[in-house]
């Protein structure tokens, strides 16, 4: 139940401002793809176009194609709501719904669109999703407590459980560890390794060691200067990007000479 993503000649705009220029990239199913690059290079913006979250901001739009196993996400008649229910997203800061219990947080996506499920099915889904996010053992005795009472790392894993409960094709992660301590970060990275057995995972990260640890392929984005659009500089196997990049800019960035 995982699908590949092929992006063709994608331009991303905020109003008239071109934020990301001419990106073409092929993201394999059941693999982890990392986007790295300096701040403001458009990697998060680009990530948000992959589940049509970009257009939530007023004036934001894209040109080009994003194909999910061949189906264009931006084709005529495609409902962004359907796209988002198939491509899950985990955000920079953990964002469980504060007014819902842990259990209801996991079920939040499933209960959308008035889908009805029995209590038994719901219980099983809550357990399997929390197991899948390595959180079950920590919260199984307090499923009715609010999700906001968990630690930051636990909240982030709750958000991952919420995302996988709807059985998406792809999971997008926008710097999922940047607000977490090293131990929670490790727990999330372990989880990402397990998730790729079932899902296509795309992760944006500021942390190059993290990209090197978790990803199969890495894309390096860069920006020529303030006000210029971000571009995809190089995309390849993670090992090659870090040890043997073909572009000078990539080499400078991964070796810490700028950025």
């Amino acid at each position: 139940m995982s699908k590949r993503i092929d992006v063709k000649d994608l331009n991303v705009y905020y109003g008239d401002f071109l934020a990301v220029e001419d990106v073409s990239i092929n993201i394999e199913a059941k693999s982890v793809t990392a986007f790295i690059g300096p701040s403001g290079c458009g990697k998060s913006t680009f990530l948000r176009t992959l589940n049509r979250m970009h257009e939530v901001l007023p004036g934001a739009r894209v040109e080009g194609e994003v194909l999910l196993d061949g189906d264009n996400l931006y084709g005529p008649g495609v409902d962004p709501v359907t796209v988002r229910s198939q491509i899950g997203m985990v955000f920079q800061r953990p964002n469980p719904f504060p007014t819902m219990s842990i259990r209801d947080n996991v079920l939040a996506g499933v209960k959308l669109n008035n889908k009805k499920i029995s209590k038994g099915e719901a219980d099983a889904l809550v357990e399997s999703s929390l197991q899948g996010a390595n959180l079950w053992n920590e919260v199984k005795d307090r499923l009715e407590k609010p999700g906001s009472g968990l630690s930051g790392g636990q909240q982030q894993r709750l958000c991952i459980a919420r995302a996988i409960a709807v059985e998406p094709q792809v999971i997008l992660m926008d710097e999922p560890c940047s607000a977490l301590d090293p131990i929670s970060t490790l727990a999330i990275e372990d989880l990402i390794n397990e998730l790729k057995d079932q899902y296509t995972v795309v992760i944006v990260t500021h942390n190059m060691q993290q990209a090197a640890r978790v990803s199969d392929k890495t894309a390096f984005f860069n920006i020529a200067g303030t006000g210029k659009p971000g571009k995809l500089i190089e995309f390849g196997n993670t090992q090659n990007i870090f040890s043997n990049p073909t572009q000078k800019a990539t080499e400078d960035y991964v070796s810490g000479r700028f950025g």
């Binding site: 939530v56 709501v81 899950g88 955000f91 964002n95 995302a163 709807v166």
Partner: peptide
């Protein structure tokens, strides 16, 4: 944050 969480789930 919470509005985007809901939208990203397909709300």
């Amino acid at each position: 944050l919470h509005e985007e969480a809901a939208l990203a789930l397909g709300a």
